[in-house]
Design a protein around this nucleic acid. Structure first.
Length: 319
DNA sequence: GCGTCCAGGTCTACC
DNA sequence: GGTAGACCTGGACGC
């Protein structure tokens, strides 16, 4: 437990359109940083390591979708000098997609037979990210070969037991574990404590590799060529094509057994006969159809499945 | 109740 | 280089 007794505030204007609620708490229940964060009456309480520092956050919006204003009250263990405050603020802006321009995506989405149906519901929803790749990489490992209910149970247990607990404003929010916190752990202990099965070994191996050899952070990966970024990610233990597409800041099209069913029906009008075998074919069609906007298209579709099912009169498996 | 199947993949041994 | 088979666990399903 780490008590975050010092605080500072920042305020900034994201690039419109920006819907704060849709962005930080996605309709399908996706959280911003921690899987265990509180969203009440327009305020999000969450915690994450930013710039290597555990930061508790109370985020809210005082603007509108077309004239957005985000207010962030940030909590740290030690008093932050102005320079560090600015660095944390810059990273947070980046994490919540505040500077991302949705214009190009909306241009192609309005002309697309699938995406045109989701724009009204999700207008102003931005993609978000973490500062380092470890949380998303660990998340991807915990999503492998398990129903979503079990994955959620594993994630919550993993974060609660092995992450650093941030205490601020009478709230306790667990953050994702850092590689250094996990590298020395016995995989058998993790497997037993959170029923992670074979995933425990992969998590510890991933943590050891990143902790001992280092790895580019999200911003550095984005500056690399997409092929190089993907190559580096695929070199990590436990990270295959599906997980790399979740983690890669260049944006991928992460098709697994569940999304193969959804996108198979959307693209070809029927669910794949052999979902695993057809994953590559469905992924190819998504990348052909949406190109550099494939990740945004994936995000918008999976956040609006119920509406899309009704509009297209197709039965889609919900998350 | 009990046994079997398989799920938001990846790794490895074997050919 | 391509490809079965193994890997944890627990809910769903058939009997």
């Amino acid at each position: 437990m780490t008590l975050l007794r010092h605080s500072f505030s920042i305020r900034f204007a994201p690039k419109a359109p920006y819907d704060f609620t849709l962005t930080v708490r996605k309709p399908a229940g996706w959280t911003l940083f921690s899987s265990i964060e509180a969203f009440e009456k327009g305020f999000l309480w969450t915690a994450a390591h930013i710039e290597g520092i555990l930061v508790g956050m109370k985020l809210s919006s005082e603007g509108t979708v077309d004239a957005p204003q985000v207010v962030a009250e940030l909590f740290t263990e030690r008093r932050m000098p102005t320079r560090r405050q600015k660095a944390i603020g810059r990273a947070l802006r980046r994490n919540i997609g505040a500077d991302d321009d949705l214009g190009g995506f909306y241009d192609i989405a309005r002309r697309d037979d699938i995406l045109k149906h989701v724009l009204d519901d999700l207008y102003g929803m931005h993609s978000t990210s973490q500062s380092t790749i470890f949380p998303d990489a660990a998340l991807a490992i915990l999503l492998q070969m398990a129903p979503i209910k079990r994955s959620n149970a594993m994630i919550d247990c993993f974060i609660t037991n092995y992450g650093e607990m941030a205490e601020f404003e009478a709230r306790r929010i667990p953050s994702w574990p850092l590689p250094a916190q996990l590298a020395g752990r016995d995989p058998a202990e993790l497997a037993k404590a959170c029923k992670l099965g074979y995933r425990a070994k992969r998590l510890v191996e991933l943590a050891k590799k990143i902790d001992s050899e280092g790895f580019p952070d999200t911003e550095e990966l984005e500056r690399l060529a997409p092929e190089e970024s993907k190559r580096l990610l695929l070199g990590l233990p436990g990270i295959g094509p599906y997980s790399a597409d979740i983690v890669d800041p260049h944006g991928g099209f992460p098709i697994d057994v569940w999304s193969a069913d959804v996108f198979g029906k959307l693209f070809f009008g029927e669910e794949p006969k052999d979902k695993r075998a057809d994953i590559e074919c469905i992924k190819t069609e998504g990348l052909r159809r949406w190109g550099k906007w494939s990740w945004m298209a994936f995000l918008y579709v999976v956040q609006d499945l119920e509406n899309l099912s009704k509009k297209l009169e197709i039965k889609l498996r919900l998350i």
